[in-house]
Design a binder for these strands. Structure first.
Length: 724
DNA sequence: GTGGAAGTCGTTTTT
DNA sequence: CGACTTCCAC
C-alpha cells in the first residue's frame, strides 16, 4: 500500500494527523470523528512510510476490547500481523513488564492478580485483625481509600501522617494491606501500574532499555488516564520518545475512578512541541443529533473546545416522551422498537441506554412481554461468578501456594469441616510469623498446634492442592481444570444449591472447562506456563465475548458502557433530575459536569434517531419519587426536540399499562369521579396528584402525592377529595 | 452448616 | 422494593 492509499478517504485533519512528521501529537477527536481509524492509520503510516519497525511501537488502550479491535484493524490494513508491536491495556502491559522483571520488581515469580472482589475480602480480614467493626469502618471505604491512593501513585509510606482518626485508621489498614499482599504475592489493579512505574524509576538501565525500544507510543482514550498512568507514560517516554495521545475531554466520564481530565489539558505543557489536531467532523450522527449534543456540552466550562459538525443530513427531530411512570416509559420504548423493527431494521441496531443498572429491570419486563429479544451488557462477568472464582482459586493455589486470597476462598469450599475457629487460628499464626496462610498451616501441623480433627482436615485439603499441583506440567489446561473440579468436588457442591441456581452453576463449570480447552495464550513467552497466562487473562480480561453475541437482539446498557459504540436508533431512558444527573452529583459542579459529559456521550451514540424518555413518577428503592425532566434536556436547542404526546390515554395510563387486570381499578375511581394522575384537593393536605388506587368502591385506598404534605394513603370515602 | 429472619442500603465500574 | 449481608436457632 502506498502513501496515497493510506491517506485515501481521510479528511484533511485526519490525514494531517496520520502523516505528521515524528513529534508529540495531541489529537482531540470528537465523538464519531474517526478516532480509531486515525490511530490505526498512523501506526500503519509509521511502519510503511517511515520504515519504523513494529517492534518500536507501543499502543495503549483502556479495554481489552479496544486493544483487540486495534490489532485486528491494523492487521487488515497491513495485510500481515505486525509482530513485535505492543498493543494492550495499561494494566496488561504493566503486567507483562512485571512478569518479565519479577525479580527487579521484588515479586515472587508466580504472583497473582487480585481483583476487586478478592481485594474487598482481604480488606475485610484486615479489619477483623485490627478489630475494626464493620459498622463504623466499612471495608468498602478502606478499599476506595486504598485504590484512590494507588491511582494517585501514593503508597502508605508516602502519606503524611496526621492525628486525624479517620486518616490514621485508613493508613494503618493501607499498611497492613500492602504487607498482606506482599507476603501472599498478590498484586491488585492499581498495584500493577504503581509497581511497574517504580520498577522503571528504581532501575534506570531497565528504563533505558524500554525507552530505546519504544520511540513511538500511542495512547487511546487519553482523557481517561489517571495520575499513575500518566506518570507511567511520562517516565517511559522520557526525553526521546514521541507520544501520540488521542482523546476527547468531552467524553471523560471516569473521573470518579481517578481519571484526570487535567492530563489532557496539560499534555502540551508536559510534552513540549506538541502539535494539536482537532477532529471535528462527525461521520456518525445526523445534524440534528449533533446540534443537540453541542448544545448540551456547551454548558460545561474549561473545555478544550471542539464543535462537531457534519456534512450529513439534518435528520429527524429528537423525540421526547414523558411517561406517567417507569412502566409507561418502558412500554412506550417497546412500542417504538416494534415500529422500527416493522420497518425492516435489525434489533441490534437499537440501544436502550440508562444511567443506572437498576433501571434495566422494568425495561426488560416490557421487552419480555412483547417477546423482543434483548441483550444486557455489563452486569456480571463470567469470571466473576462464584463457582468460577472458586475453581480459579484452586488453580491459583496450584501456581502459588502463598496466595492467601485464594486459600481463604476455598479452604472450606466445598465444606470439609474447617470452620471459622480453625481458620482464625491459622490467620493469627500467619500474622505472628509474617508468613502466608499456607505455610502457617504447614507449620501448625508439624508443631501439632491444631486439634486432631482440624489437622486432618487441613492436611487433606493441602494434599489435595498438592496432588493437583503435581500435575500442572503433565496435563493440558482443560484436563487440569476438569480434574480439579472433579477432585475438589466443586461440581457436586454447587449442584446442591437449590433452584435453578445449582444447575446453572454446574453448567458454568462445564463452560469453564471449554473455555480452558479453547484458550490461546496471549504471550509467546515460553517462560510462563499456559496456566499462569490463563489466570492473568481471567483476571484482566472480562471474557466479554459470549456466544449469544451474534443473536439479533436489542442492546441494553448503561451510558458508561455505551462509550465508543454507535447505534442507528438510541433511547436514553430516565432523563430526569436526580436520576440523570444523579442526585449524588447535582450539588457538586465538577460532578455535574461529568454527568453532562455522560449526556453528551449518550446523545452522540445515536446515528439516525434519538429518543429521550422520562417518567413523571418513578419507584426508586420502593418509594415513589417525582422528578422533573432532566436539565440536560432543557439544554438541547428546542428546534431539535419534539414532544411525543400519546393520545388521550395520558391521563389514565394504567389502562394501557396492563389492560385486563388493572383497567378495573381505574373504573372504580371513575365512579367517584377520579382517575389516576388527576389533580385533586384535600381539605387538610391541600392539592396533590393521585398516584395509585388499591381496591374498589368507597373503601378503596388511594395514594396521593400532595404538593406540600408529601405522599399519603387515604381511604377514598373519608378523604373528601375534590377534583381540581 | 443450613436456612430463615431480620437488618442494610441503595451511581457509574474499561482494569 | 429487592439484593445482599448478618445473625441466630436448629
Amino acid at each position: 500500500m502506498n502513501s496515497s492509499q493510506l491517506l485515501d478517504h481521510l479528511n484533511p485533519p485526519q490525514a494531517q494527523a496520520v502523516s505528521a512528521p515524528p513529534g508529540h501529537q495531541l489529537i482531540l477527536a470528537g465523538a464519531g470523528s474517526g478516532k480509531t481509524r486515525v490511530l490505526v492509520h498512523r501506526i500503519a503510516w509509521l511502519i510503511q512510510q517511515q520504515g519504523i519497525s513494529p517492534h518500536s511501537i507501543m499502543a495503549v488502550t483502556f479495554t481489552n476490547k479496544a486493544a483487540r479491535e486495534m490489532r485486528a484493524r491494523l492487521e487488515q490494513l497491513l495485510g500481515v500481523n505486525p509482530r513485535g508491536l505492543w498493543v494492550g491495556t495499561f494494566h496488561g502491559l504493566a503486567h507483562r513488564l512485571l512478569q518479565t522483571h519479577w525479580q527487579e520488581a521484588k515479586l515472587p515469580q508466580n504472583f497473582q492478580i487480585l481483583d476487586s472482589d478478592d481485594q474487598l475480602r482481604l480488606i475485610k480480614r484486615i479489619h477483623q485483625a485490627l478489630n475494626l467493626d464493620e459498622k463504623s469502618w466499612p471495608a468498602r471505604q478502606s478499599a476506595s481509600y486504598i485504590n484512590a491512593h494507588k491511582d494517585e501513585g501514593c503508597r502508605a509510606d508516602h502519606v503524611i501522617e496526621t492525628s486525624d482518626l479517620y486518616e490514621r485508621t485508613m493508613l494503618s489498614v493501607y499498611r497492613e494491606y500492602e504487607q498482606a499482599c506482599q507476603t501472599a504475592g498478590l498484586v491488585d489493579f492499581g498495584e500493577l501500574l504503581l509497581r511497574s512505574h517504580e520498577l522503571w524509576l528504581n532501575n534506570p538501565v531497565l528504563l533505558r532499555h524500554y525507552q530505546e525500544r519504544f520511540p513511538f507510543i500511542l495512547v487511546d482514550e487519553f482523557q481517561d488516564t489517571n495520575t499513575v498512568q500518566y506518570a507511567w507514560l511520562r517516565v517511559l517516554a522520557g526525553q526521546q520518545c514521541w507520544v501520540t495521545a488521542v482523546g476527547d475531554d468531552d467524553q471523560s466520564i471516569y473521573g470518579w475512578r481517578g481519571a484526570k481530565i487535567e492530563n489532557i489539558q496539560q499534555f502540551d505543557q508536559d510534552f513540549p512541541g506538541t502539535s494539536t489536531i482537532r477532529l471535528e467532523q462527525n461521520y456518525r450522527s445526523t445534524a440534528t443529533i449533533l446540534q443537540a449534543a453541542n448544545g448540551v456540552i456547551e454548558h460545561n466550562f474549561g473545555r478544550l473546545g471542539k464543535t462537531l459538525h457534519t456534512e450529513g443530513e439534518q435528520g429527524e427531530a429528537i423525540s421526547l416522551y414523558a411517561g406517567f411512570n417507569e412502566q409507561d416509559e418502558a412500554r412506550f420504548i417497546v412500542s417504538q422498537i416494534d415500529k422500527w423493527i416493522g420497518l425492516g431494521n435489525r434489533r441490534d441496531s437499537i440501544a436502550i441506554l440508562y444511567r443506572s443498572n437498576a433501571q434495566s429491570r422494568v425495561l426488560e419486563e416490557a421487552l419480555l412481554r412483547e417477546s423482543v429479544p434483548y441483550r444486557i451488557y455489563g452486569g456480571h462477568r463470567f469470571y466473576d461468578r462464584l463457582e468460577i472464582k472458586n475453581i480459579l482459586a484452586y488453580l491459583r493455589l496450584m501456581v502459588n501456594r502463598d496466595d492467601d486470597a485464594a486459600l481463604e476462598r476455598v479452604i472450606n469450599t466445598p465444606t470439609r469441616g474447617i470452620g471459622g475457629k480453625t481458620i482464625d487460628g491459622i490467620r493469627l499464626f500467619a500474622r505472628e510469623q509474617g508468613c502466608s496462610l499456607w505455610s502457617a498451616a504447614e507449620k501448625m501441623i508439624t508443631n501439632k498446634a491444631l486439634s486432631n480433627r482440624a489437622a486432618s482436615s487441613v492436611s487433606s485439603f493441602m494434599s489435595l492442592v498438592q496432588t493437583l499441583a503435581d500435575q500442572v506440567e503433565s496435563l493440558q489446561l482443560h484436563e487440569l481444570a476438569e480434574k480439579a473440579i472433579a477432585l475438589t468436588g466443586l461440581k457436586e457442591f454447587h449442584g446442591k444449591e437449590k433452584g435453578e441456581k445449582g444447575q446453572a452453576r454446574q453448567e458454568n463449570l462445564d463452560e469453564f472447562v471449554s473455555a480452558c480447552r479453547v484458550y490461546q495464550p496471549t504471550s509467546d513467552d515460553e517462560d510462563t506456563s499456559i496456566l499462569v497466562d490463563f489466570l492473568a487473562s481471567a483476571a484482566l480480561d472480562a471474557g466479554e465475548e459470549q456466544a449469544d453475541e451474534f443473536e439479533d437482539a436489542v442492546q441494553l446498557m448503561t451510558l458508561h458502557s455505551a462509550k465508543g459504540l454507535e447505534f442507528p436508533l438510541v433511547f436514553m431512558a430516565g432523563v430526569e433530575e436526580n436520576l440523570f444527573p444523579h442526585k449524588m452529583s447535582v450539588e457538586d459542579p465538577t460532578r455535574l459536569e461529568e454527568e453532562r459529559r455522560l449526556a453528551y456521550v449518550g446523545i452522540t451514540r445515536a446515528m439516525t434517531k434519538l429518543y429521550l424518555t422520562y417518567a413523571e413518577t418513578r419507584r426508586i428503592h420502593g418509594k415513589e419519587s417525582f422528578n422533573s425532566v432532566s436539565r440536560f434536556v432543557k439544554e438541547i436547542p428546542s428546534e431539535c426536540l419534539q414532544e411525543v404526546r400519546v393520545k388521550s390515554t395520558v391521563t389514565r395510563p394504567i389502562e394501557y399499562n396492563r389492560p385486563p387486570a388493572r383497567a378495573r381499578l381505574s373504573d372504580s375511581t371513575e365512579g367517584l369521579g377520579f382517575s389516576l394522575g388527576q389533580r385533586v384537593s384535600h381539605p387538610i393536605f391541600g392539592e396533590g396528584v393521585i398516584l395509585h388506587v388499591e381496591g374498589s368502591g368507597p373503601n378503596a385506598h388511594i395514594e396521593i402525592n400532595f404538593d406540600d404534605a408529601g405522599t399519603k394513603r387515604l381511604v377514598l370515602q373519608y378523604a373528601k377529595l375534590e377534583a381540581v
